[in-house]
Design a protein around this nucleic acid. Sequence first.
DNA 1: ATCCGGACGA
DNA 2: TCGTCTGGAT
Length: 227
Amino acid sequence: MSSKQDRLLDIYRRLLASYGPQGWWPAETPFEMCVGAILTQATAWRNVELAIARLKDNDLLSPGSLMAAGEEVLADLIRPSGYYRQKAARLISLDRYILSRGSSMDWLKQEDPKELRQELLAVNGIGPETADSILLYAGNHPVFVVDAYTRRILHRLGLIQASLDYHRIQQLFMDQLPKDPALYQEYHALIVALGKEACNPKPRCGLCPLRDLCPTHIIPESTIPQG
DNA sequence: ATCCGGACGA
DNA sequence: TCGTCTGGAT
């Protein structure tokens, strides 16, 4: 029987059964993963793919190459991913940091994730979600990634207040789930799948595999909370 | 018009 | 806490 303790694991099993393994992160190298993490900030992945393809065409997906290209060239290439001036500056900050640590990027998997997190957060353009994404998907560290979908979905499921902060939402997952990076990688990806397919800002509960355990879908439409 | 796999500065 | 950054898809 499922108690309150393993509800998140139960939700995970349902999402996996409905959507299948997502196989995240879609990148060929750790460096490409980090670049994607910056480019996808508040941006649909579809647009990020265009930007990454353009970088790849110009051989700019290796450490050092972004800095060498220069901010303006970079901005022009990543234009389809939006926020292109900000993100060009952020990619250069990222590249500088990676060069300072070693371009093989082995350190990302080998060093203490708590120390790495502090360093990442000190880089311009890397906030909590981006830092944790890099730790989880490029470093294979057991750090759960929280994004806007995660907060919205948990709130609609009645599991948290909409105002609960990043760290506490992260703790909720990490307290209830085994510290397994493969599990965290798949779970976050499945949450994003649910957020895209069904749990939109205007929820499409008819498509939702969790609707039978969600209090939101039985509320009349006019009173559905918009948070 | 609305919404995207946020972060930063005021 | 809020305004801003920006293009692309629906």
